[in-house]
């Protein structure tokens, strides 16, 4: 238990929670904005127009191939240097995570849309539905069902990836942890592990419900 007393120091927990709030805020805004971006991107990926498809392909591959860290540095330092677009660190994080989440979710949407047999659309058309009706009443509900488990998984990945924000100087939960460790370096030299342990638990508490929800939904829809 050596060093665990660091956690009882006044202000340690509130500050870690403040840091966690920054983490959750970035993740929540990114996931929230990724959903519409991803739905539109997924729809565009299934469009027949070859130009649109090519553009979407390049977008998806570019985002997939580039490490998120490199994208973050480009958004934060690169844009400022090239065009004097000075996005703040949090803004740069949200921008990158939305572009990334949107691309990944778009690909999931594309896969889900294409997995619905064409015959269903045709049947809906035969029953007299307009193309919008057949999309919104027949195709979309089934698409969302197939989409949910994988997109919840994507959301947990975004939560964890927010830790990269620390490299842009965002004071989120990891950085707060480092500050606390350093400020108590001489008083609690072995406190490091405890602080990181608490941070681990905090990430766990944020991500676990998402995993639980994904599993529950998968189970419920397995028999449909």
């Amino acid at each position: 238990m050596q060093g665990a007393e660091i956690l009882l120091e006044l202000g340690v927990f509130p500050r870690l929670l403040q840091g966690l709030w920054v983490t959750v805020w970035i993740a929540a805004v990114s996931v929230g904005l990724s959903i519409p971006v991803g739905l539109v991107a997924g729809w565009l990926m299934t469009v027949r127009n070859p130009v649109v498809r090519a553009v979407m392909r390049v977008y998806l591959d570019f985002i997939r191939i580039m490490p998120q860290l490199a994208l973050l540095f480009i958004a934060y330092y690169g844009l400022a240097r090239a065009w004097n677009w000075n996005v703040d660190a949090t803004g740069a994080c949200v921008l990158v995570f939305v572009l990334w989440g949107g691309a990944e979710l778009g690909d999931l949407v594309r896969g889900a849309l294409l997995s619905i047999p064409q015959v269903q659309a045709e049947t809906a058309y035969m029953l007299g539905m307009t193309s919008w009706q057949s999309f919104s009443r027949v195709i979309l509900p089934q698409t969302l069902r197939r989409l949910l488990p994988a997109s919840v998984n994507l959301a947990t990945r975004i939560v964890k990836t927010t830790s990269l924000a620390v490299l842009l100087g965002v004071v989120e939960v990891i950085k707060v942890g480092q500050q606390i460790i350093d400020a108590n370096r001489f008083q609690y030299p072995t406190g490091t592990l405890w602080v990181y342990g608490v941070i681990f638990l905090m990430y766990f508490i944020v991500c676990w419900p998402l995993s639980l929800a994904a599993r529950a939904l998968e189970k419920r829809w397995a028999n449909d």
């Binding site: 490490p67 490199a70 540095f73 480009i74 330092y77 690169g78 240097r81 090239a82 490299l167 350093d182």
Partner: peptide, 27 residues
């Protein structure tokens, strides 16, 4: 020129991040 500087920034970024991780180890 901007793509070049963008690319350079990206590469710098990667190099810097590797260096930083090494730096954290020797805090």
């Amino acid at each position: 020129t901007t793509t070049a500087s963008k690319l350079r920034t990206a590469l710098t970024a990667i190099a810097a991040s590797v260096a930083m991780v090494a730096g954290m180890a020797a805090c």
